[in-house]
């Protein structure tokens, strides 16, 4: 069932009217998702998040959406936009080349309401791979001025993976995540690689053991969807193959 609402706002000479179709679902009393259509005026630079906030401000304040930074940094605003997981604040309406923009909550996450989803599973799997440097701390605590130096080449090994903002878009795109409720997921696997590949870290064996179980790294089947949707260029699929390299003896 789609309802149409129009925002009566002054159009500027450069603006364009599009239909913003928002998925509405409240697990407390809805049995199904419904879509509500809103006509919104957008400029070339208007982001999908701005269009949603426009709807909230002018028509339906009850649309649930999570956001904070508005600059692709906090990782809060992930949602499925025209069928693909993207950050709403990092996606311009104009780049979608469509007069209808459909926004839905991320797949593979339980819905709190409308576009807001629960992150418990992502935080748990992220935590599970020990996303911090593991080392004998006496080295640092006995000498508080000690620095752990790295060469540019050593930094190059993992720096790309440290750009992860935990937005969950990769987990949302992953086909294994869709059916395997125990799968550790591309986000956590990419972070496992980020620390394993860090020359300052000593936790490689611990981490490889954690992901080497029946719902661990081997449940990735090279679909590569995670890397296609990552807004920060992390490439979890590549990290997963590198981790497999350690486990199969191609890397040390």
């Amino acid at each position: 069932m789609a309802q149409a609402y129009e925002i009566d706002e002054k159009k500027t000479p450069t603006s364009k009217t599009i239909t913003l179709r928002i998925a509405r679902f409240n697990p407390e009393h809805d049995s199904d998702t419904t879509f509500m259509d809103f006509s919104v005026n957008v400029e070339k630079w208007t982001t999908v998040l701005e269009a949603i906030l426009d709807v909230k401000q002018h028509f339906d304040h009850s649309v649930a959406v999570r956001y904070s930074c508005r600059q692709a940094t906090c990782g809060s605003c992930g949602m499925v936009i025209n069928g693909k997981p993207r950050l709403a604040c990092f996606t311009k309406v104009s780049e979608l080349n469509s007069d209808t923009v459909t926004v839905e909550p991320m797949h593979n996450f339980p819905i709190i309401r409308d576009l807001a989803v629960r992150f418990d599973r992502l935080f748990n799997t992220h935590h599970k791979v020990k996303p911090y440097l593991i080392r004998d701390d006496s080295e640092i605590t006995s000498n508080t001025t000690k620095e752990l130096l790295q060469s540019p080449e050593e930094l190059e090994q993992f720096i790309q993976f440290s750009n992860c903002i935990k937005c969950g878009l990769c987990n949302s795109a992953c086909p294994t995540m869709a059916t395997d409720s125990s799968f550790v997921g591309p986000q956590a696997l990419a972070q496992a690689y980020r620390y394993v590949a860090d020359s300052r870290d000593k936790g490689k064996d611990t981490r490889l053991k954690i992901i080497d179980e029946s719902h661990g790294i081997w449940r990735c089947h090279f679909a590569g969807s995670c890397s296609q949707v990552c807004p920060k260029g992390v490439d979890p699929a590549m990290g997963i193959q590198f981790l497999r390299g350690y486990m199969l003896g191609f890397r040390s």
């Binding site: 059916t179 409720s181 799968f183 029946s214 719902h215 449940r219």
Partner: peptide
């Protein structure tokens, strides 16, 4: 086994 483990989860089932 891999296909079935990804299809459904649970101690007894697995």
């Amino acid at each position: 086994r891999v296909i079935l483990l990804e299809l459904k989860q649970g101690r007894v089932y697995e």
